[in-house]
Amino acid sequence: MKGMTLIVKTIARLISGLIFLYGIYIVLHGHLTPGGGFAGGIIIAGAFVLLILSEGSKKASSEIKKQRASVGESSGIFIFWLLAMLGLFTGSLFFLNLLPKGKAYHLFSAGIIPLCNIGIGLEVGAALFAIFITLAVLKTGEKK
């Protein structure tokens, strides 16, 4: 996949970090403000998609990125499933909120809900990025 002009590259480099940070903020504050794992994960994927679209990507490095995205996606859903199963093992209830609830409206509150949000965010972001990079690799492969 070919990159774009210098103007687009510079702007994308400046902005993608901010988008990435915003995605992390949305994921971490999922239990306090609108958003959560799904929305934040997609925003994180959007930061990477912006970088790939502007900078371009070589075929070999795209394969590595695809494998890493696949690993991230699998580990994200594994974290989520593990948290659900932990409740089953310790308290004999699927999705039991086993951590202390903490003070409401604080960042560290609501038990396992923030951890679930992190798992979902990892899964959603990596899955969307994997789909995108797979299509991008297919395009460069056909042109040769």
Binding site: H31, L32, G35, G36, F80, N97, A104, I113, V124
Partner: peptide
């Protein structure tokens, strides 16, 4: 649940099965 965002409380606690299925 202790979560200030009710949507998060519902999708990750009351309705956890649904969210696992979606993921």
């Amino acid at each position: 649940t202790g979560a200030a965002n009710l949507v998060a409380a519902v999708i990750l606690d009351f309705r956890g099965y649904d969210t696992l299925g979606e993921a």
